[in-house]
Amino acid sequence: MNSVKQIVRPPRIASPLIAGVIYSIIWLALGALLLSLLLYFSGMKENNLPQSALAIHGFSALAGGFVSGKRSGMKGWYYGAMLGLIYGITVLTIGFLAANSGLSLSSALMLLAAMLAGAFGGMVGVNLKK
């Protein structure tokens, strides 16, 4: 008799970049929720939000780059950096459309941090493929 796991397989995302973007958005949502809870329940000040948001963006890009590199199996830095670029442009576009925020030095810094963190995550992901 066949088990349900053998009959119904969960869908697998074929593209490493799309899988990485999905994972990075999930980590972004969890980080934003954690940051909101810390802001509400602790003595954290709103002045610390830009640094905390940059750290969350960096970690999200790192996690997405890790997934992209692991799924690609090669050129982890390339897939991770492309993931960071896509992630950063997506976040900046959403910020522009939702909050009418323009481009600034902090948005360029976030884009650079996302690309570097994604590239590092991709390199680690490729090397942990074994």
Rank of each mutant, 00 (worst) to 15 (best):
A32F: 10
F66Y: 07
A61F: 01
M115C: 03
L49E: 04
F96N: 12
I18Y: 01
M123G: 09
R71K: 06
L34A: 12
L17G: 00
L17V: 02
W27G: 14
L109F: 10
L38I: 03
S60Q: 05
R71L: 04
A61D: 00
L49T: 10
V124F: 11
K129V: 07
S68I: 10
S72W: 00
F41K: 13
N2R: 15
A99Y: 07
L49P: 03
S3A: 10
A61N: 01
V124E: 10
L92Y: 13
T90M: 09
Y79G: 00
G31I: 14
G76H: 04
L28Q: 03
L38G: 07
L109H: 03
A113Q: 05
L109G: 11
L28P: 01
L109W: 06
S36D: 06
N127R: 06
W77N: 02
S60V: 04
A113L: 11
Y23N: 05
S107G: 04
G122E: 02
V4R: 13
E46C: 08
S107F: 11
L128K: 12
Y40F: 15
G73M: 13
A119Y: 01
A32D: 13
G58C: 07
N127P: 02
P16M: 15
G43V: 14
R12D: 05
A119F: 06
P16K: 12
L33Q: 09
P10Q: 05
V67N: 00
L97K: 03
T90H: 04
I89P: 04
G122K: 00
S101I: 05
A53T: 05
A119S: 07
G118A: 13
S24N: 15
L83S: 14
V67G: 00
L83D: 04
A117S: 15
A32V: 07
M110Y: 15
A114P: 02
L49Q: 12
L111V: 04
I7T: 13
A81L: 10
L30D: 02
L49G: 08
A19C: 04
K70G: 10
A63V: 08
L37V: 13
A14T: 09
A53R: 12
G95N: 13
G65D: 05
Q51G: 09
G121P: 01
M74A: 15
V4S: 14
A108Q: 06
I56L: 08
Y23G: 03
V91D: 01
L33V: 08
S107Q: 07
G31W: 03
I89N: 11
G88D: 13
S36E: 08
Y40L: 06
L35G: 14
L85I: 08
V67F: 02
L39F: 09
W27V: 07
G84C: 12
L17T: 00
G121L: 02
G88P: 05
M82A: 11
G122V: 04
V21G: 00
G20W: 00
L92K: 12
Y23Q: 06
S72D: 02
A108C: 13
V67D: 00
L30I: 09
L105P: 03
N100R: 14
S107K: 12
L112T: 09
Y87R: 02
L35T: 09
L62V: 10
A113T: 04
K5L: 14
R9S: 11
K129L: 06
Q51W: 09
G118P: 09
A98I: 14
W27H: 08
L92G: 08
Y87G: 02
L116S: 15
M115F: 06
N2T: 05
S42V: 07
L97E: 05
V91H: 02
